[in-house]
Amino acid sequence: MAVLVVAEHDNASVKDATNKTITAALALSSDVDVLVAGLGAGAAAAAAAGIAGVRKVLHAEGAAFEQGVAEAVEGLVVPLMASYDAVLFAATATGKNAAPRIAAALDVSPISEIQEVVNATTFVRPIYAGNALETIETSDAKKVITVRTTAFAAAGAGGSAAVEAVTAGAPSAAVTFKGAEIVKSDRPELAGAKRVVSGGRAMGSADEFHNVIEPLADKLGAAVGASRAAVDAGYAPNDYQVGQTGKVVAPELYVAVGISGAIQHLAGMKDSKVIVAINKDADAPIFAIADYGLVADYKSAVPELMGELAKAGL
């Protein structure tokens, strides 16, 4: 059985989400190829070839791939599937956008956000915001799968796969890329960060979010997250949202500040190793899943915590 992993990359390097998807792919088969489609993505293709367990890297060039346009990815991947039994994407915005399109083109029922490979046809995936897990068996000859990356370890270095160029067809005329506003940050990427500090509605303003959450995150070398309420209120950009329909994170340390803990938020962070909650409402649902709860107003608690972290040498 041959498996294709569609890589996420920035043309220079492969994203950690892809290393994790490769681990899931290797649980299906030892014949795992990686597709790197981008613009000037030679370095990313070379990086993919260096990942342990990769058999071959397919490298395609095209402007539409740089923007992750689903129609372009469909046009590239569907013909390639003549040689593969399964295709895996990381369950990121890009992967979720493209994978179902490819599944429909192949007349396959997609399998979304798997968190466990039971065997080559059986998978475990969360439903109802992770409040239930379903074990499903597919009868489709080909499989189209997205992978919840927090559930898999990243495949390491040590591979020496060959890179093979593949040609892409003409891009779809029906879609035109008009622009992007990408949040620039020196902080770790939220989805794969080892530590995350998230702020909630209690922040009250974008300034307060910026002045309270970000310094604490920087002190911890953490990524910044937010609850839906904080994003809806405009305190934080959409990309920060942790939850059922935002990012799913599972860091070693998750610090929730002024977040009450709606089930939709818990869905995105409950698999974190250690959860800290700071909230002045002792009855906030977040305390039910927090390892360490501090019932206090963040206005005093966060500066105190910053001081204690400084004393501890951070």
């Binding site: 992750g68 990121t92 915005a93 890329f177 992007a180 949040v183 990309d239």
Partner: peptide, 8 residues
Amino acid sequence: IDGGLQTL
């Protein structure tokens, strides 16, 4: 999208 917003 991941990282921010995109316009198509």
